Every structure is written in C-alpha cells, then in structure tokens.
Computed example of a mutant assay.
Amino acid sequence: MELNEKQIRLCEENNEDFSDLKALFINCTLKKSPQTSNTRGLMDVAKAIMEKNELEVEVVRAVDYEIAPGVWPDMTKQGLEKDDWPQIFEKVMAADILILGTPIWLGEKSSVCQRVIERLYGQSGELNEKGQYAYYGRAGGCIVTGNEDGIKHCGMGILYSLQHLGFTIPPQADAGWIGEAGPGPSYLDENSGGPENDFTQRNTTFMTWNLMHLAKMLKENDGITAHGNQRSAWDAGCSFDHPNPEYR
C-alpha cells in the first residue's frame, strides 16, 4: 500500500522507537483468501505506517480459519469437531496492539467480527501475572469499510467491546471509508475515491499513531498500574480503600 506525502513525512520525522512493539490486525471480511478485501485495503494503510516505524505486524483473515461459535477457550472441549481460535488467541496475547477490521452489512459489523469479539470475550476473565484481566496493557482500535452508512455505529460497538474486555483505547481509535449511500464502488475499486479521501486517510493515520504511542507508553510502564483492578486480590477480600468494605 502506497502512503501519501503527508503520511510518509510523518514517518520520516518520527523520533520515537516503536521497534519492540507487535501489532495484530484481524480482518473480519466475509471473503476468503485470495479474494480482494476492501477492508484489508484500508487496513494496509495502517499496516504500512507501522512497518515504516519497524513494528512487527501480522494480519489474520478470520474467515480463513474455522472459528467455532461459543465463549469457551477451545470449543473442541465442548463437543465441536474443530476450532482454530486457540492459535489466533496466542497471536492476540503476543501483540501489543489489536486492530479489528470489518465491512458494514445492514448497518452493522460483520458476523465474523461479532464472532471474534465473542471469542475474545470467552477468555477475558483470565488473569495476567499481576492478577488483572488478561488483555490489560494492550491497545485496541478498529477500521470499518463499506458503501452504506454505519462507520460510527460499528466503531462504537467494537471499541466498547474491546475496552470492556480490558483493552486500552486511545483517542481517535477508529477509522473508516464509505462511498455514496447505496450500491457503488468499494474502497479498492477504480475511481472509488477512497485512497484519496483526505478525511479517511487523516483518521486512519491519527488512529495508527495514537495506537503506537499508547502501546509504547503501556509497554514502558509495564501495562496498567496494578491497584484497585486486580481480580485475584478482590476475590481474596481486599477492599482497595472502599469506604464500606462489606459492600465492596
């Protein structure tokens, strides 16, 4: 993906070292590889910015995997024949940044995206070494594409879900592109206007840099400070300075 002049200049002027960060993009398109994904097209802008700043980046197209429905870590242990989620979860836990990308269908994020969120939810109750929920210390964002309205609606639901599960959300953590309302060209289609759209490129750029800055701050500070947010301590009876410990 070619970056525009403004995006390239920001990369060239950067003095921050992001080389120890890892980012995972999960593309929730409904199209299996090698079909063209317009969502991937916009995600590639963020990916290119990250790679120019020496982040380790991986893209997973969720529909290429057999992600079983459910909210258990491994659904084969619940009687289903196959479940590829455990290997994707390992990639999530190895990353400092998670970006979910989705097309818009009937004003909503894709069914694939919803399933990924449900599977993330299934392991959100696990704890890290400090007794906090598992996703603490990771930054989250989203990218949305389509040719019908719904970018902000989809972003609202995705980002709410990610923060509820424990991800930290920076300012301007969503970006998207839609063409004219109704049938029309998608982001990567010829003369769509998407790659040249200043609003889309600006928001995608800001989102990417904010994710990198936040992930760097979190990593340098060993995640979120562990006081008042440790499930293990809460279960052990700590009140965390609650004025009435009996009703903590």
Score class of each variant (00 low, 15 high):
198 D>W: 01
142 C>S: 11
163 Q>T: 15
148 E>G: 12
114 Q>H: 12
137 G>L: 03
222 D>L: 10
174 D>V: 13
207 M>W: 00
107 G>E: 01
216 K>R: 14
221 N>Y: 10
191 N>R: 14
160 Y>M: 12
185 P>H: 03
114 Q>E: 13
202 R>Y: 12
162 L>A: 08
161 S>K: 03
202 R>I: 07
179 G>I: 09
132 Q>P: 06
163 Q>F: 08
151 I>Y: 00
174 D>F: 11
126 E>G: 14
152 K>W: 13
112 V>S: 03
158 I>H: 05
217 M>Q: 15
142 C>H: 02
178 I>V: 15
141 G>P: 08
229 N>E: 07
104 I>S: 01
107 G>F: 10
210 N>T: 08
130 K>R: 06
166 G>V: 07
225 T>Y: 13
160 Y>L: 12
133 Y>A: 03
190 E>R: 12
184 G>P: 12
138 R>S: 00
111 S>N: 12
150 G>A: 01
183 P>G: 08
99 I>T: 07
146 G>N: 05
134 A>E: 11
223 G>W: 09
111 S>F: 05
222 D>S: 13
216 K>F: 01
168 T>K: 08
131 G>N: 02
191 N>A: 13
212 M>Q: 08
99 I>N: 00
109 K>N: 03
167 F>I: 01
158 I>A: 07
125 G>R: 05
229 N>S: 04
220 E>P: 04
193 G>P: 09
208 T>C: 06
96 D>V: 04
96 D>F: 04
200 T>F: 10
124 S>P: 01
110 S>E: 03
146 G>S: 02
164 H>Q: 15
223 G>F: 04
100 L>P: 00
209 W>V: 06
193 G>N: 02
156 M>Q: 14
204 T>C: 15
104 I>A: 00
85 W>K: 01
152 K>E: 15
223 G>V: 10
168 T>V: 14
106 L>G: 09
116 V>T: 06
227 H>S: 14
167 F>C: 10
99 I>M: 04
100 L>V: 04
167 F>K: 08
171 P>R: 01
158 I>P: 04
158 I>R: 02
219 K>L: 03
163 Q>V: 13
213 H>W: 11
194 G>H: 07
192 S>M: 05
230 Q>I: 05
114 Q>Y: 06
86 P>I: 00
189 D>R: 07
117 I>Q: 12
220 E>G: 15
157 G>R: 12
204 T>S: 14
137 G>V: 08
161 S>A: 15
193 G>I: 08
194 G>T: 09
181 A>K: 14
199 F>E: 14
145 T>C: 10
93 M>H: 05
198 D>A: 15
203 N>R: 14
202 R>N: 13
196 E>T: 11
210 N>A: 11
177 W>G: 07
168 T>H: 10
157 G>Q: 10
130 K>A: 11
181 A>E: 14
155 G>H: 00
140 G>I: 00
210 N>W: 05
